[in-house]
Nucleic acid binder design. Structure first.
Length: 565
DNA sequence: CACGGGTGCGCG
DNA sequence: AAAGCGCGCACCCGTG
């Protein structure tokens, strides 16, 4: 059963039930649905949830947080906006009325309803301000059902929509629970590396100030601001150090007494500005880090974040992520996920076999394709990213001889992209088309009047788009695997919880593309680890059926995140 | 003063 | 060793 929730013009909530009608594939929605007003949303959802419906709503981020705040969880949902975006572009539904229709309000990104102030307070923004067209979830849901039903692969696209929606629920729940964060520990890390917090915001902490003073002396540049690349290049030049950029790896090649303190300054300045005390004040509230996850925020289907930089948490400060007393963190990451995804997608049995023993790169070396593990790794990255030069570019052909099926798959995706065509992931998320400027440059390149520079530029842009589509199928399918994994883990943890509320039982607290963190009572940690492993196996089957491919995990049971890996 | 592009670096 | 994919964020600096 589905229950569609909508907001009426007067701000009230209206619910409409759908009951599946036999085996018609879901296109027809059976008896004509009746809308009913809902006065107490939380109570309504809590009651109806016992029948395990799938809740249908415009944006999970606009409905679910307030339910969670009232301690109401839902098992399943259908996020209309996220699903609309998938169906709009998917090659599996390209002939549908939804895909053929003009762009409309469902193509617009969800509007954030809260913003975070530096003091940690939440600032409420207006509800969707843009006038737009009135959204009709019911009509949109019908269009989406029809698009899936008419697809040649309703199973695949249906699984993708379910996984994407589950991801939206998980994002809201992780935001609600937050990542356990010890502000005092974070402060201790900062103080140890930078010196005490300055009394006045904006002043440099002691260690940074010392480094700056030394740098200015060593470079004889009393006014130097190392945060300004232009200023730095100039000052280095006056000291006889000619550089075209101030990137760390570039500076490392130089021999000069100022280089070591400069690299140290850059490292500490980065820590201070990205994850210093200001970040701590803004994003950590009541010993929890609560970032805004953005499911589907990346074209490939990966999540993004908005504010807080949750997906870039530096290793330096992971020691501040500490489990509550009597609790543990179970940290699990999928080993070598993307190359394994590639092997599975291509059905390349030799590459699958190479990874079967645990270390795919070691397996590639054992097959004789390359000599060292580092070579295997660099060559695989080159294959997935489209390297043409350097060691990676040189090693790739050897990989192609050893694993023709896997390499042919990414080469095929690259050629399609170069021609301006669409490619798709395993479950049917499709790449966007290149922009109008790209198309125009390509057609002009074959024009007789095209200059050599124009032709070269067009070729370069074509190859660049080919690298994007080459990577899209792998990164996007890996993102699907991760969503299925996480959805499975969530289901298993919910079963484990019984009647206990979300944060009183094992629950997901972090997700990082191919890695998850579960916060759980210490005595359940080993059971949780088993469930996480079972979830990975389930995700593999969901995507690749009976293909005997393993997605091995590295699982660590720790007190703080810094201890993992 | 606000805005936006460029740079650099954190993560996968 | 620094090439090839996807991001977000802080900072600098030129422009309006």
């Amino acid at each position: 059963m589905h229950i569609v929730l909508a907001r009426s013009a007067d701000g009230g909530v209206v619910a409409t039930r759908f009951v599946e009608s036999g085996d018609d594939g879901g296109n027809e929605l059976g008896i004509e649905p009746v809308a009913e007003p809902v006065s107490d949303l939380a109570a309504f959802v809590r009651t109806e949830e016992q029948a395990r419906p799938r809740w249908v709503w415009d944006d999970t981020s606009r409905w679910y947080p307030e339910l969670l705040a009232q301690h109401v969880r839902v098992e399943r949902c259908h996020d209309l906006r996220l699903c609309h975006t998938i169906l709009r572009y998917s090659q599996l539904t390209s002939g549908s009325a939804l895909a053929m229709a003009q762009h409309n309000e469902w193509d617009a990104p969800a509007v954030a309803i809260v913003r975070r102030e530096p003091d940690g307070a939440l600032f409420e923004l207006d509800e969707r301000q843009e006038p737009g067209l009135p959204t009709d979830p019911l009509a949109e849901f019908r269009l989406q059902r029809a698009a899936v039903a008419a697809s040649e692969e309703p199973g695949r696209i249906g699984r993708l929509l379910a996984a994407e929606s589950a991801g939206a629920l998980i994002a809201a729940e992780m935001r609600f629970a937050g990542l356990p964060w010890r502000a005092a520990e974070h402060d201790a890390i900062l103080t140890g590396m930078l010196g005490a917090r300055p009394a006045v915001d904006g002043e440099r902490p002691a260690k940074l100030q010392e480094l700056l003073t030394r740098l200015r002396e060593l470079l004889e540049a009393p006014e130097l601001n190392p945060d300004s690349p232009a200023d730095l290049v100039k000052s280095l030049g006056r000291a006889g150090l000619i550089v075209t950029s101030t990137r760390s790896w570039e500076l490392k090649k130089l021999e000069h007494p100022a280089i070591a303190p400069l690299l140290e300054y850059k490292k500490l300045a980065r820590l201070l500005s990205a994850n210093g005390w200001h970040w701590l004040d803004t994003w950590v509230v009541d010993e929890r880090f609560k970032p805004d996850y953005v499911p589907g925020g990346v074209v490939t289907g990966r999540w993004a974040t908005s504010g807080g930089g949750a997906l870039q948490l530096p290793r330096q400060i992971r020691g501040a992520v500490v489990a509550d007393d009597g609790w543990k963190l179970v940290v699990a990451d999928a080993s070598q996920l993307e190359p394994r995804i590639l092997a599975a997608m291509a059905g390349d049995r030799d590459m699958v076999t190479a990874g079967a023993a645990g270390d795919l790169y070691a397996g590639i070396v054992a097959s004789g394709a390359v000599e060292t593990r580092d070579q295997a790794k660099v060559a695989m990255l080159g294959a997935m990213y489209g390297a043409t030069t350097g060691e990676s570019g040189r090693l790739m052909p050897r990989l192609a001889r050893a694993y023709p099926k896997a390499i042919a798959l990414v080469e095929h995706a690259a050629r399609a992209g170069e021609r301006g065509e669409i490619v798709s992931t395993r479950l049917g998320r499709s790449s966007p088309l290149p922009g109008a400027g790209w198309q125009q440059a390509q057609s002009q390149a074959y024009d007789e009047t095209a200059t050599q520079a124009q032709t070269a530029r067009a070729r370069s842009e074509a190859r660049s788009w080919g690298r994007f589509t080459r990577n899209f199928i792998v990164q996007g399918t890996a993102a699907e695997w991760a969503l299925c994994w996480m959805a499975s883990v969530r289901r298993r943890l919910t079963a484990l919880a019984g009647e206990r509320w979300l944060t009183d039982a094992p629950h997901l607290v972090f997700f990082l593309h191919d890695e998850i963190v579960v916060h759980c009572p210490a005595e359940l940690a080993h059971i949780v680890a088993d469930e996480i492993r079972a979830g990975a196996a389930e995700a593999g089957t969901l995507l690749f059926g009976p293909l005997p491919i393993e997605f091995p995990l590295t699982v660590a049971i720790v007190d703080n995140y810094g201890q993992a890996k």
